[in-house]
């Protein structure tokens, strides 16, 4: 059952990202674990692509211990925005730490810096996990501005962006506004498949 759901998600994302430069995925919190698993499996199965994964949700270290297969992956780099703020000071070659999720400009800089080192012909993907958490730490207006910048910069550099928005009743009006900046929106529901 679970595997079917994950496979379904993988397929939907793969198809959507092929056609669109940026996709937003809006989902209930209950589907979040499946979605990230689907994403990481997809990343792991395509070593020829370059991925940058911005995490505002879980420390990079937690992600790596949950998905051990990522530890040897050469095609994913993390931008971890919460470890430092949470007082976790583990160093990691595959991860750039930003002191706080409020330092949006720095997050933007680090994303671009990582992609600068990637060969031009390699397919490039960016994941923002998640817009919901960015809004929790920041003023919604500034997140909109940030996200708008990111969408534009990645577009000019031919980077595909996948941004996650976990449904949160009180934040819905902001999330809706944000998610609509994407070229394509996927809504995940329990009855998704």
């Amino acid at each position: 059952m679970v595997n079917v759901l994950i496979d379904g998600l993988k397929e939907r994302i793969s198809n959507a990202i092929k056609i669109n430069q940026s996709i937003g995925i809006i989902l209930p919190a209950s589907n979040y674990p499946d979605l990230v698993q689907a994403l990481f499996e997809r990343i792991n199965s395509t070593p020829e692509e370059a991925w940058v994964y911005v995490t505002v949700t879980k420390p990079c270290d937690n992600i790596l211990s949950q998905f051990e297969f990522l530890k040897d992956s050469k095609n994913i780099k993390f931008v971890d925005c919460i470890s430092r703020a949470a007082g976790i000071n583990k160093a990691n070659d595959n991860c750039i730490f930003v002191e706080s999720p409020t330092m949006l400009e720095k997050i933007g800089l680090e994303i671009i810096n990582i992609f600068k080192e990637v060969d031009e012909n390699v397919k490039k993907y960016l994941v923002i996990d998640s817009l919901t958490n960015l809004i929790i730490y920041n003023d919604p207006d500034i997140v909109t501005e940030f996200f708008y910048h990111i969408i534009n910069r990645t577009r000019t550099k031919n980077i595909h962006t996948i941004s996650l928005a976990i449904e949160e009743e009180e934040l819905d009006k902001y999330l809706t506004r944000l998610i609509y900046l994407n070229d394509k929106i996927l809504k995940v529901r329990d009855s998704f498949i």
């Binding site: 330092m103 949006l104 400009e105 720095k106 680090e110 003023d139 207006d141 500034i142 501005e145 910048h149």
Partner: peptide, 20 residues
């Protein structure tokens, strides 16, 4: 501008997002 200092790139600048 927003300024970042990192061991990798030293001083870097980026447009400052307008916060209220």
């Amino acid at each position: 501008s927003a300024m970042s200092i990192s061991t990798k790139n030293g001083v870097e600048l980026a447009p400052l997002l307008k916060s209220r």
